[in-house]
Measured scan of single mutants.
Amino acid sequence: TTTITTTNEEDARRIATEWKNKGYTVHVEKRGTTFRIEVR
């Protein structure tokens, strides 16, 4: 599992989409101002 964190919502969406397009399972969680993107 790879975890990526960013405070930028646009980055979070872009990163999540990129990983999904590669065939990975992506889970995005917002904690306060931080977005945690888990890639499996």
Rank of each mutant, 00 (worst) to 15 (best):
T1W: 15
T1F: 14
T1I: 15
T1N: 09
T1P: 10
T1E: 07
T1R: 08
T1C: 13
T2H: 14
T2I: 15
T2P: 06
T2R: 14
T2Q: 11
T2Y: 15
T2M: 15
T2L: 15
T2G: 06
T2E: 06
T2F: 15
T2A: 09
T3D: 04
T3E: 07
T3A: 07
T3C: 13
T3N: 06
T3H: 08
T3P: 04
T3L: 14
T3Y: 15
T3S: 07
T3R: 07
T3K: 05
I4M: 07
I4P: 01
I4N: 02
I4K: 03
I4A: 03
I4S: 02
I4E: 03
I4G: 01
T5R: 06
T5W: 15
T5C: 12
T5M: 12
T5V: 13
T5L: 14
T5E: 13
T5I: 15
T5D: 07
T6H: 03
T6V: 14
T6M: 06
T6C: 09
T6R: 03
T6A: 12
T6S: 06
T6L: 07
T6I: 07
T7W: 10
T7Q: 11
T7R: 09
T7F: 11
T7N: 13
T7G: 08
T7M: 10
T7Y: 12
T7A: 10
T7H: 11
T7L: 09
T7P: 07
T7V: 08
T7I: 07
N8W: 05
N8M: 05
N8C: 08
N8G: 05
N8P: 01
N8D: 10
N8I: 06
N8T: 09
N8R: 06
E9S: 07
E9C: 10
E9V: 08
E9T: 04
E9P: 08
E9R: 08
E9Q: 07
E9I: 11
E9G: 07
E10R: 09
E10Y: 09
E10W: 10
E10D: 11
E10H: 09
E10V: 09
E10I: 09
E10P: 05
E10L: 10
D11L: 11
D11I: 09
D11Q: 09
D11F: 10
D11C: 12
D11P: 01
D11M: 10
D11N: 07
D11Y: 11
D11K: 06
D11T: 10
D11H: 09
D11A: 10
A12P: 00
A12M: 08
A12T: 04
A12D: 00
A12I: 03
A12Y: 03
R13T: 10
R13F: 13
R13S: 08
R13P: 01
R13K: 11
R13L: 14
R13W: 15
R13V: 12
R13I: 14
R14E: 05
R14Y: 05
R14D: 04
R14W: 05
R14S: 06
R14T: 06
R14L: 07
R14I: 06
I15Y: 05
I15A: 03
I15G: 00
I15F: 05
I15M: 05
I15E: 03
I15N: 01
I15Q: 03
I15K: 02
I15H: 03
I15V: 06
A16M: 09
A16C: 09
A16Y: 08
A16E: 07
A16D: 01
A16I: 11
A16N: 02
A16H: 03
A16K: 03
T17L: 14
T17Y: 10
T17W: 13
T17E: 14
T17S: 11
T17D: 12
T17N: 12
T17Q: 14
T17G: 08
T17A: 13
T17F: 11
E18G: 05
E18Q: 08
E18A: 10
E18Y: 15
E18H: 13
E18P: 00
W19F: 09
W19I: 03
W19N: 02
W19G: 01
W19K: 02
W19D: 00
W19A: 04
W19C: 02
W19R: 01
W19P: 00
K20H: 09
K20R: 15
K20D: 04
K20E: 12
K20I: 14
K20S: 11
K20N: 06
K20W: 08
K20L: 13
N21K: 11
N21T: 09
N21C: 09
N21S: 11
N21H: 08
N21P: 00
N21V: 08
N21A: 12
K22E: 04
K22L: 11
K22C: 08
K22M: 10
K22Y: 05
K22W: 06
K22P: 00
K22G: 04
K22N: 06
K22F: 05
K22I: 05
G23Q: 02
G23A: 02
G23V: 01
G23Y: 02
G23P: 00
G23D: 02
G23W: 02
G23F: 02
G23R: 02
G23L: 02
G23N: 03
G23E: 02
Y24Q: 02
Y24H: 04
Y24L: 04
Y24E: 01
Y24M: 04
Y24T: 01
Y24C: 04
Y24P: 00
Y24A: 04
Y24V: 02
Y24G: 02
Y24S: 02
T25D: 13
T25Q: 12
T25Y: 12
T25E: 13
T25P: 04
T25K: 09
T25L: 11
T25W: 13
T25A: 10
T25V: 12
T25S: 11
V26Q: 00
V26W: 01
V26T: 04
V26M: 01
V26C: 01
V26N: 00
V26P: 02
V26Y: 01
V26A: 04
H27Y: 13
H27V: 13
H27T: 14
H27W: 12
H27D: 06
H27P: 00
H27I: 14
H27A: 08
H27G: 04
V28G: 01
V28D: 00
V28P: 00
V28E: 03
V28Q: 03
V28N: 01
V28R: 01
V28L: 07
V28S: 03
V28A: 03
V28I: 13
V28W: 07
V28Y: 05
E29A: 08
E29W: 12
E29M: 10
E29G: 05
E29K: 08
E29C: 14
E29Y: 14
E29V: 12
E29L: 10
E29Q: 09
E29S: 12
E29T: 14
K30S: 06
K30Y: 08
K30P: 04
K30C: 07
K30W: 07
R31T: 13
R31H: 14
R31Y: 13
R31K: 11
R31V: 15
R31P: 02
R31M: 14
R31A: 10
R31G: 05
R31L: 14
G32M: 04
G32T: 03
G32N: 05
T33R: 10
T33W: 06
T33G: 13
T33N: 15
T33Y: 09
T33S: 13
T33H: 12
T33D: 15
T33K: 11
T33I: 11
T33V: 10
T34K: 08
T34D: 09
T34C: 14
T34R: 08
T34Q: 12
T34L: 14
T34H: 12
T34N: 08
T34F: 13
F35G: 00
F35S: 01
F35L: 04
F35A: 01
F35M: 03
F35C: 02
F35Y: 14
F35P: 00
F35H: 03
F35I: 07
F35N: 01
R36L: 15
R36S: 10
R36E: 11
R36Y: 15
R36V: 15
R36D: 06
R36Q: 11
R36M: 15
I37F: 01
I37D: 00
I37P: 00
I37N: 00
I37H: 00
I37E: 00
I37Y: 00
I37Q: 00
E38V: 15
E38M: 13
E38N: 09
E38S: 12
E38L: 14
E38C: 12
E38K: 09
E38Q: 11
V39N: 01
V39F: 05
V39K: 02
V39S: 02
V39E: 00
V39L: 08
V39M: 05
V39Y: 04
V39P: 01
R40G: 08
R40D: 07
R40S: 15
R40M: 13
R40L: 12
